[in-house]
Design a binder for these strands. Structure first.
Lengths: 179, 179
DNA sequence: TCAGAATCTGACCGAGCGGTCAGGAACAAT
DNA sequence: ATTGTTCCTGACCGCTCGGTCAGATTCTGA
């Protein structure tokens, strides 16, 4: 049986502290103190501080890749609804991870592991805009995308309460005449 | 004649570097080097690093206070349109300052000079929601507020291009049936 | 001309940071 | 019991950070 208890505990505590104080605002010393181990132990389990963040964010990143791939197979008529529903599901499932990514943007955007994120969000914008080339449609798409993410990060309400309101405002703004 | 050239130059350079690297990502040494003076000179003109940020953000903060005061005098029927137009004007005029505030949130939200900001944005949310108590209306208001701010920060297009698209999406989302 | 105020600086400080390293302790397989 | 591996640690390193301070320099008004 492999021992991963400490490693998991590090991730749990790091998530908690990153949420409370941000990535830059949390030091390895802080995490180690809360876990009850030494700083050197953190760096035994994770090569760098960044590696902790990457491990934390990985599941969300994978889900985003999946979503974008799924949207690529949807035709222009249905892509807006699929993008709206898919994105809102995603950010509600990964609220903490979304907050974390926003916290470290844009410093980490040039990191190898992160540079596909930009391209992925561009694909989402295209989905929200129904693949329209009209700048106004793309602006609307960006407003909704960023706004929904911000609310999910900031608003502490349950996703059951939040989801219908988010879907409603997105449809009103992006699917005029369909509501 | 009072010499304020150095002070102004510090603010100009600080604005530039904060934009490029963020507040935490810019050191006093960086600013001093770019200005061509010593770090001690910065701290002669500004008591702390935070004071530079506060000086930079002050005009935008004052405008926000003015806007909220103005909205208080508008009746429930007209408050949504007034809030939308007023807010979009504000963030387009103070794009850099808005980006800066977002950069240092939430670390600075508890700072004395910043704690009214929360209360001010709450007032804006109420305006966007037409003073409705319905949680769904407030969610929609938050989505648009945050989304517009994010786009203004991120999108490099001219405000002449941006404004109509922002106003349009806000009206569509918040004033259903009026467009 | 000269005193005093405003402006500026190099040297320095203590603290915190991410990260390294040699080696101790615990555990597993033989 | 011995060996090799995994897990863990204290001490330490180099660096950057915001901030201080005594004193030099420059400006200004009487």
């Amino acid at each position: 049986m492999v021992r991963i208890r400490t490693r998991d505990e590090i991730l749990r505590v790091a998530a908690e502290l990153f949420t409370r104080y941000g990535f830059k605002g949390t030091s390895l010393h802080d995490i180690a103190a809360e876990v009850g181990c030494s700083k050197a132990t953190l760096l035994y389990h994770f090569a760098h501080k960044d590696a902790i963040l990457l491990a934390l964010v990985e599941p969300a990143r994978q889900s985003l890749i999946d979503l974008v791939a799924r949207l690529a197979g949807v035709d222009d008529r249905g892509v807006r609804e699929a993008a709206i529903d898919g994105f809102i599901d995603l950010v509600l499932r990964y609220r903490f991870e979304v907050a974390l990514i926003y916290d470290v943007t844009p410093q980490f955007l040039q990191e190898p592991a992160f540079n596909r994120v930009r391209e992925l969000t561009d694909a989402l914008v295209a989905g929200f805009a129904g693949r329209s080339a009209d700048p106004a449609d793309q602006t609307a798409a960006k407003v909704l995308l960023a706004g929904i993410a911000a609310v999910v990060i900031d608003d502490k309400r349950d996703e059951v309460e939040l989801r219908p309101a988010l879907v409603a405002v997105a449809r009103r703004a992006l699917l005029p005449g369909k509501d």
